[in-house]
């Protein structure tokens, strides 16, 4: 199997969007371009149950064929790693199931195989998720209420880089923040494969008022298209493993 690439957006937010486009609709559009949308909702320490505003988090990820989790700031590190890994596995699972269907007929997916054969398919998927190239747009909500959680977000992203650096596949990422005074999103760090650089972009975070999540998602997703003109990314753009393949049951 030839090596492909997986493209993801990781949105980190603590509340519901209150301005502009419907983020769920935007997310549905983004997945049609071959990019999955993962969302992590960050709870305040004193929030004992999921606030209604955070329900949107699950809806955006569901529309974007991604993974979502709602957690306290303290659990961010573990969660980010898990969400990223799981989303990648899901995309690859969907892709492999699609391939199986084209070989074995319409009704076939991995679970229809006997456990012994399934084991072999699993190994192929594991190889793939270890070696596939990963391109990730990280989009951080920096509205006022996120202020107290920023250091935890920074720690968690820094930690995520340790995990992604350990993979065999190439890893490229870019970081955006929203909202800013003049633009919907602001580029904090252009496409890079250097995990250490993320720690340095964080002091730049300015924290502002409104939360236009939908518009921000749309803008940030453009990063994948910008990258097509980019020399580093050109090779990766050919062989995208499309997350919309994913057969949800």
């Amino acid at each position: 199997m030839n090596k492909g690439s997986v493209s993801q957006i990781l949105l980190i937010t603590d509340g519901c969007s209150n301005q502009g486009e419907d983020p769920v609709a935007v997310s549905r559009h983004i997945v049609s371009t071959g990019v999955s949308v993962n969302v992590i909702g960050v709870l305040d320490d004193d929030q004992t149950e999921e606030p209604i505003g955070l329900r949107e988090v699950n809806e955006i990820a569901e529309a974007g064929k991604g993974v979502s989790r709602i957690v306290y700031a303290d659990d961010l590190s573990e969660t980010m790693q898990m969400v990223t890994q799981q989303a990648m596995t899901q995309t690859i699972q969907g892709y492999v199931n699609q391939e199986l269907k084209s070989i074995l007929g319409d009704e076939t997916n991995e679970e229809a195989l006997p456990p012994e054969t399934r084991g072999e398919v699993q190994e192929v998927m594991e190889d793939l998720s270890e070696t596939v190239d990963l391109n990730m747009v990280i989009l951080v909500d920096t509205s006022a209420s996120m202020q107290t959680k920023m250091s935890a977000v920074k720690e968690a992203l820094d930690d995520l880089m340790i995990s992604l650096d350990a993979r065999q596949g190439q890893f490229m990422y870019t970081v955006y923040q929203f909202p800013t005074r003049k633009q919907v999103v602001k580029l904090l760090l252009d496409w890079t494969d250097d995990g250490k650089r993320i720690a340095k972009v964080f002091p730049k975070f300015a924290v502002g008022g409104i939360t236009p999540t939908g518009a921000a998602l749309r803008e940030a997703a453009k990063a994948f298209h910008i990258s097509e003109q980019d020399d580093v990314m050109r090779g990766a753009a050919y062989d995208v493993i499309d997350p919309s393949y994913r057969s949800s049951s």
Binding site: S77, D165, R167, Q168
Partner: peptide, 23 residues
């Protein structure tokens, strides 16, 4: 040579910034 699949923070050298997560 691969990325560690599952770990627990306190036992993980990456968490303590004493190394990476390549197995």
């Amino acid at each position: 040579g691969r990325g560690i699949r599952e770990y627990t923070s306190i036992y993980d050298r990456g968490f303590w910034r004493l190394g990476g997560r390549k197995a």
